[in-house]
Amino acid sequence: MRGNSIRTACGTLLSLVVVAGAAGCSNGDGSASDAASKAASAAASIGSQAADAVDSATDSAKKKLDEVKDGVDAKDAVKLGDVTTDAEGSSTVTVTARNTDDSTKSFAVKVDFKDPAGNLVDTVVVTVSDVAAGESKDATARSTHKLSGDVTATPGTALRY
């Protein structure tokens, strides 16, 4: 899925480069092909940075989930609210965990943020701590960086421990 996100971002930026080159745009110091080459290089750099951010967030999420000992699958006990943007520009979503166990438990929930095409643009793990038996509790998942456009959130792995 990450590959689709990178191809989409690079393809969009490359299309803009081609249009600019076809229109004969330049900075006055070089040819249109020089301007297009510089723009293509910038597009590749942006695509690489986006891929690196997703890779880093994915690695971090995996490490956090690996730290959970004796966790049981609890994906059916987790619900996500609507994605909103906070004052700092991060995407946020309320995570509600319902504890069906007979003792207090905590939850580690991986939340995947996706663009309108379904491509992964960020992932985080949020902990919902000390949920009393038979009760529900909320926590907020916050993206690791600013996300643009319409972003959705889906639950990934959810562990009760």
Rank of each mutant, 00 (worst) to 15 (best):
G24I: 04
V18G: 05
G28V: 08
C10R: 15
R98T: 15
S15M: 06
V125H: 05
V151K: 04
V109C: 06
T127I: 14
S15Y: 06
A117I: 02
D34G: 11
A133P: 03
T92K: 08
D150L: 07
S48K: 15
A20R: 14
A36F: 07
G24C: 07
G89Y: 10
G81I: 07
G81N: 08
G11D: 05
A35R: 11
G156S: 06
C25T: 14
R2N: 00
A42P: 01
A20N: 13
A132Q: 12
C25V: 13
G3E: 13
T92F: 03
S56C: 10
A51K: 10
A153F: 07
A117L: 11
V17Q: 01
K79H: 05
L120Y: 01
T92Q: 13
Y161Q: 13
V124W: 01
P155A: 15
T92E: 12
K105C: 05
S37C: 08
S33L: 13
K63M: 12
A23D: 11
L120P: 06
A97L: 07
G28H: 05
A51N: 10
K137F: 03
A97M: 12
V126H: 01
G71K: 04
D66T: 08
K75I: 11
G81M: 04
V54F: 00
S48F: 13
S103F: 08
K75Q: 11
S41K: 11
K38C: 04
T84P: 05
T92P: 01
R7K: 12
Q49I: 15
A153Q: 03
N119P: 00
A57Y: 01
V68G: 01
C25D: 14
A32C: 09
V131Q: 03
A61P: 02
G28M: 03
T154R: 07
G71P: 07
V128T: 01
D76I: 03
V83E: 00
K63S: 15
A51H: 04
S37I: 07
A35V: 00
